[in-house]
Design a protein around this nucleic acid. Structure first.
Lengths: 341, 341
DNA sequence: ATTAGCACTCAACCACATTGAGTGCTAACG
DNA sequence: CGTTAGCACTCAATGTGGTTGAGTGCTAAT
């Protein structure tokens, strides 16, 4: 357990370091109005805090830098998430004043807003589509042998892919198939589509056309394959403005990771409900071991609606980001609730 | 007019510089088997070439570096675009062996292949959709007041956006409208959609529903607004591997530009038919004044099919990129022709 | 016309001293 | 006994001066 004074000093050091990105010395802490002790006293405390693993020294004659454990303590016990600035508030107001119809639009634009307000990178995952239900299915023939399959989900998400049409299927056959599918599959969650396809649709399909095996195959890969949520990125290059990332190699690793959707999905796969902070090596992904990731998830009546992440240096402005995220996510949730009341 | 020897020397210098990224001295040129002159002679020629504005000196006691004019001469008169490597050829073969149905898939994947083979950034613009015709139109209601509009073009491109449904329009009205539009607009080029909407559809629409003004408005913005081609990017972070871009500021400018679709569109707006090279400041876009952009456009029977761009440092391997682009674009064109024969 | 020779230039590199922000320790102080 | 002033110490950062070497331009000889 830390003494009150130790907490004060740790708080001061982390605050200072977040602002300056430079090791913090005892003298500069002692000058702060809220810490009225001499540098010597503070040095003693700092030595103790270092022994506890909360601070680190780049080299003997430098100031102290928060360790990951230090940031963790700071985030868990020292900060308090408060209101947000006048400016930011106005910007968010403006954001919600825009006319948005789909949840995906809200969550997508939220990425942009957040990266602008924080100057960090924002990563947003759309709703997990396998929880949604099928709203509409359409096959649009492009030429004799291929067509574009279009899927619309209950969340308003539109997905499309190309499919080959097996030999000997005519235009009217396609229309019949589409009608059948829309009739049978509307309102069915994606997660159940595969089984319904086999149990109910197989038989009916064989009545319409001969080569029903092939078609079932195509439909299955088309309808069941799609489970990846959409990823929105904003402010990817903001990392380049952070002084700790002047090393091009690391920056490339991070940017490369952001380019790879599967990696991002894996990164978000394990985040729990609500707002969470992952600092440095807590992230388990090599490339962002020098970064912190703050995530917020959204859900409504047990259905996951997607998640937002802010990626910045470990030295990120936790108070600001957490406050913003707190504020914004409440607005977003109420937007959704209102839309679905 | 340059002498034969001057051409040889200029060629040698540019070649060397492209490989090494370091100023080229007279001695290293003289050592090349194809330039059998003493360093002194070469120095004299280099002085002349500098006076002509084809070479530059970073400082008095450094070697020479090609100027933009130098690269221009090199590209226009010295290189010859030849065959491509065994490896590359195999990769491209593998690429065309994949099953692709839509032109958009071909052109999109081409971006990936090119950035992998060249280690530069590739930018691909899909077909200009306003030249395409409307294949299919659909309105899928999401809730009482809004719907998702889906547009499929003759090129297989799928576009969607959300629309609000005016008060007092029922489900069956929507179905009627969709049927009418599909009937009247199928096969109409997008560029003409607006006028057809007014001349033919307005009247018919008023027979179906009352508040036809409002609906026309919505349809117009939905159908006519969309003219932007899709942009595919690949290998954006490859710039970070180039030694000349160790300056983070410049890199950020370039990456930021790549993130902004409108800027990219403007950049491509002025490129002519065929393959073209733009070196350094010839690009007119501040951020890429230190880059070269090689573009290739595709078309078939007068219809534009999109364009490919390779963005690299001015010191890029013009021979390789031009050869690759030449080879690949022929394959792509023949793919398209075969598909539409 | 070509080239060997030579004086000259200048970025890059290294060794060394200087500086100053920061530390830990000890002894004095209230 | 907790706090603090004082002091010796450390070390990255910065500056200085010398050396090196790759490169040049010019001149005179071939």
């Amino acid at each position: 357990m830390l003494s009150e004074r130790q907490r004060m000093i740790l708080n001061a050091i982390v605050d200072d370091y977040i602002r300056s990105a430079e090791p913090v010395g005892s003298r500069s802490i002692s000058k702060r109005s809220d810490v009225a002790f001499s540098p010597a006293t503070i040095r003693n405390e700092m030595a103790d805090l270092e022994e506890l693993g909360l601070l680190e020294q780049p080299h003997t004659s430098a100031g102290r830098v928060p360790s990951i454990k230090g940031y963790r303590y700071y985030v868990d016990h020292l900060i308090q998430v408060g209101g947000i600035g006048e400016q930011d508030m106005r910007k968010i107001r403006g954001f919600f004043a825009e006319k948005m119809i789909l949840w995906e639009e809200v969550i997508g634009h939220a990425a942009t807003i957040l990266s602008q307000l924080t100057n960090y990178t924002s990563i947003v995952l759309g709703p997990e589509t396998f929880q949604a239900t099928l709203k509409h299915f359409q096959l649009v023939p492009i030429n004799e042998s291929s067509a574009v399959a279009i899927i619309v989900t209950s969340t308003g998400h539109v997905e499309h892919r190309t499919v080959s049409i097996p030999e000997g299927i005519g235009m009217d056959d396609i229309q019949k198939i589409v009608n059948l599918l829309n009739h049978k599959l509307s309102g069915i969650p994606f997660i159940k589509v595969k089984s319904v396809l086999h149990s109910e649709i197989g038989k009916e399909l064989s009545r319409i056309v001969d080569s029903c095996e092939q078609i079932l195959d195509v439909l299955e890969t088309t309808l069941a394959e799609k489970t990846e949520p959409k990823v929105y990125l904003s402010g990817t290059t903001n990392i380049l403005t952070q002084p700790e990332f002047k090393d091009l190699g690391k920056v490339k690793d991070i940017l490369d990771m952001l380019d790879e959707t599967p990696k991002l999905l894996r990164l978000f796969h394990s985040v729990p409900e609500g707002i969470q902070v992952r600092i440095g090596t807590e992230n388990a992904m090599e490339a962002i071991n020098q970064c912190s990731l703050i995530t917020a998830t959204f859900s409504f009546e047990g259905q996951s609606l997607g998640s937002i992440g802010i990626l910045g240096p470990t030295r990120m402005d936790y108070v600001k980001v957490l406050s913003l995220l707190d504020y914004l996510s409440k607005d977003m949730s109420s937007w959704y609730a209102k839309q679905h009341k």
